[in-house]
């Protein structure tokens, strides 16, 4: 049997919803294994800085990590698909591809090169369109807009002349407050709320077109994983699926509660991008997508598989549509 206790370095503080997933999964694995497997979840920076978790797990410096998959897109470009895919399928459809389609196969193949076993155990709901201090009435309002956002979504905004920037987490508040940047996209409302951005910005836009679902996972060094018996590995899977169900069922209502609390602040408004803006964004996304597919064959293959799978689910719901 494998180690009784493994160190899990979380990339999120466990007091927020994203990091709480690691602790929830720790409880599940403890139950499933009848107390024979235990997680010791470490806060970000406690063992290693958040952005070093993948490398540390890969080289065996730490046993396991709890991450947002998009963090490692600088190492594995395919992960842009799992972390933040613009105009992608809903969390439900994405989860179906992950667990009843080929989703895990593609990502595990990429992780094999790094001696890592990946368990995608947590999907967050759609993120938001971000906090802004000026109105966005058409895609041309993104021209010259200084906005904090990463990944493929940033490349979409670049098409309209936005200056997309990386501002370190601790400086976002100040940068937004003083106008060093005009807006920022951070996370889901539940997490955004505690950052206090609603105190210093005017608009909170929806939908989060740049990230329709995003995956969080448990990554384990394969040498550690191999020590567990087949039965124990199955227990990990069970705990993982239970955590996935928890993330999908518990989070949507929480987002609406968080938004309601934020809206109490005067001068802060929740808005939707208008249809023309969204159409233009989608058009630009299709250009970025074509570029990405041309240069990144593993992304292309996975993307096509995902969209084909999502189409089945859309078809089913269309057929069952009541009105």
């Amino acid at each position: 049997d494998g180690p009784k206790s493994i160190d899990v370095a979380s990339t999120f503080a466990t007091n927020n919803f994203l990091g709480a997933g690691a602790q929830y999964m720790g409880k599940q694995i403890n139950v499933a294994s009848d107390g024979k497997i235990k997680f010791r979840v470490h806060e970000p920076g406690d063992l290693v800085p958040a952005f070093e978790v993948f490398n540390a797990v890969s080289t065996g410096a730490i046993d396991a990590g709890w991450d947002w998959m998009g963090y490692w897109a600088g190492t594995i470009p395919l992960l842009n698909l799992y972390g933040a895919l613009p105009f992608g399928p809903s969390p439900e459809a994405f989860a179906s591809w992950m667990w009843a389609g080929d989703g895990q196969k593609f990502v595990q193949a990429a992780y094999d090169d790094y001696n890592i076993k990946v368990l995608p155990c947590f999907v967050s709901p759609q993120e938001t369109g971000g906090f802004y201090n000026k109105e966005i009435n058409s895609a041309s309002d993104f021209d010259g807009l200084r906005f904090r956002i990463s990944g493929l979504g940033a490349r979409v905004l670049n098409k309209f002349g936005a200056s997309t920037q990386l501002v370190p987490g601790g400086e976002i508040f100040l940068a937004l407050e003083r106008g060093r940047i005009d807006g920022a996209e951070f996370s889901v409302p539940q997490v955004d709320e505690v950052m206090g951005f609603n105190d210093i910005t005017k608009y909170y836009y929806f939908p989060g077109w740049h990230q329709s679902a995003s995956w969080f996972s448990l990554i384990i060094n394969k040498d550690v994983w191999a020590k567990y018996s087949e039965k124990q590995q199955q227990q990990f899977q069970t705990a993982c699926q239970s955590t996935l169900a928890w993330s999908m069922t518990s989070s949507p209502p929480e987002q609406m509660r968080a938004i309601a609390r934020m809206e109490k602040k005067e001068g802060f408004e929740v808005r939707r991008f208008n249809d023309e803006t969204l159409t233009e964004l989608e058009g630009a996304w299709n250009e970025v997508l074509a570029e990405e597919m041309a240069t990144n064959p593993s992304f292309k293959e996975a993307y096509e598989s995902l969209m084909a799978h999502a189409k089945l689910i859309d078809g089913w719901y269309d057929l069952q549509e009541l009105k």
């Binding site: 503080a13 007091n15 927020n16 806060e43 508040f173 709320e193 505690v194 950052m195 206090g196 609603n198 105190d199 210093i200």
Partner: peptide
């Protein structure tokens, strides 16, 4: 604020 889940503004 992020560890304690209280508003940074507060």
């Amino acid at each position: 604020g992020s560890i304690m889940q209280v508003s940074v503004g507060d």
